[in-house]
Amino acid sequence: MDEIEPRLKGLMLAGLAGEAGPYRRLLDELSGLLRAYYGRRCPPGLDAEDLVQETLIAVHTRRATYDAGQPFTAWAYAIARYKLIDALRRGRSHLRAPAEEADALFASLGAAGGAEAAMAARDLERVMADLPARTRQLIRETKVEGLSTREAAENHGMTESAVKVAIHRGLKALGGRYADPGQGGSG
């Protein structure tokens, strides 16, 4: 990388000065680096070549924002990183919180007996560990213990609507975290 940075930065500065040849070389070299970058980071189903092209277009359209006092590769890879994040978000937009599946999981906790129930409860606590404490408690009370949303609302000094929203958001967060990325399309 030590030799790449000064070369690419020089090509970028020449391109900014209006020299077409160096700018073309910059885009050619950068496309190879981006293919390697995305090749290591793209999950199956995400087209790395599309991301390379999107990134090259973004570099071109935002070239006037490049600060010549900063490393070029850091600037270019920041654009690449954001393009990857955007693509991952777009790819996940079809995922919905598996509320029906979550309800089945919570129902099975009540039906399971003895050791199975203890293991399921332990697993559930691990899965919900990153949720806010109140959300965890609301999910536990309504989905495992069987309280109504009205009872949970009274226990926590909340409205029923606020309880429903908190539970929905908690389940949606879990669905986003644990959904099968191979599920694809129906949504």
Results as ranks from 00 to 15, higher is better:
94 H>F: 09
133 A>V: 07
40 R>C: 11
56 L>V: 04
52 V>C: 04
55 T>G: 02
24 R>H: 06
150 R>E: 14
41 R>L: 13
102 A>H: 07
97 A>V: 02
163 V>Y: 03
115 A>M: 14
74 A>V: 14
81 R>C: 01
154 E>R: 13
161 S>L: 12
185 G>S: 12
52 V>I: 05
76 A>E: 04
175 G>F: 04
23 Y>F: 15
117 A>F: 00
63 R>I: 00
48 A>C: 15
113 G>H: 12
106 F>A: 10
49 E>M: 07
19 E>A: 15
69 G>S: 15
95 L>P: 01
144 V>R: 10
137 Q>L: 13
90 R>M: 02
127 V>Y: 01
49 E>K: 02
165 V>Q: 13
41 R>Y: 02
95 L>Q: 09
112 A>P: 10
2 D>I: 11
73 T>L: 15
45 G>A: 00
180 D>L: 00
180 D>P: 00
130 D>V: 07
156 H>P: 05
43 P>H: 03
103 D>N: 11
185 G>D: 09
31 S>V: 04
16 L>N: 06
181 P>D: 06
111 A>K: 11
32 G>P: 03
169 R>C: 09
53 Q>W: 04
105 L>R: 06
17 A>K: 14
123 D>Q: 14
168 H>E: 08
122 R>H: 05
98 P>S: 09
41 R>H: 13
164 K>G: 09
91 G>T: 03
44 P>G: 03
70 Q>F: 05
33 L>S: 01
